[in-house]
Simulated scan of single mutants.
Amino acid sequence: MNDLLTVISALGFGVLSSIIPIFNSELYVGVVAAAAQPSTTVLAVIAMALGTVAGKVVLFVLARGGSQKLGVGKAQSRDSLPPPTSRIRLWIRQTGDLLLTWLGDPRLGPLTILAAAIFGIPPLFIVAVMAGVARQNIVLFSVAVFVGRLARFAMVALPIAYAAH
């Protein structure tokens, strides 16, 4: 029962940490890896990855719905945009445009999502929202997030589980 509770908790924490970024999923996986048996750790890593997908899909769907209502994500004329008031705003706008372009591409989109899920660059929270706005395929999005987060959590948990047991 304790192992089942650990796995269910990892699933729930995966959802929570994917929606509210102050909850650190890597730290949670590390603690589970140190405290639980290796077989439970493997199941918890899978559950955490699934929970992360569930939470990111919520962000994705909300961003997709909001972008439709607000008309965001459609090509806009540069003349219709307000002039940038600083170099930082210009950089943010250019970076956002580039990210939307990558995420809108059928080949670059999943690779960008995968990179964000594994390395955290660009941040997966932002990528999930931008992928929804860019109308990325939700199945490709979900698979890329799952594979990436599974790899990331395994990279955190396996060395700790090996050292602890």
Rank of each mutant, 00 (worst) to 15 (best):
S25L: 08
S25H: 07
S25P: 04
E26I: 01
E26L: 05
Y28G: 06
Y28R: 00
V29Q: 08
V31G: 04
A33V: 00
A33S: 05
V42K: 03
V45R: 00
A47M: 06
A49W: 10
L50V: 12
K56S: 12
V61Q: 12
L62P: 06
L62W: 10
R64T: 14
S67V: 02
K69F: 15
K69I: 11
L70N: 04
V72E: 15
A75T: 07
S77A: 15
D79K: 04
T85S: 15
R89T: 11
R89W: 07
W91Y: 11
R93D: 13
Q94S: 09
G96L: 03
D97M: 13
W102G: 02
G104P: 03
G104Q: 10
P106T: 09
P106Y: 09
R107H: 08
G109Q: 06
T112Q: 10
I113M: 15
I113S: 08
L114E: 04
A116H: 02
A116N: 06
A117L: 03
A117I: 05
I118Q: 05
G120V: 10
G120I: 10
G120A: 10
L124V: 11
I126R: 00
A128F: 14
V129S: 13
V133E: 11
V133K: 01
V133M: 15
A134W: 08
A134C: 01
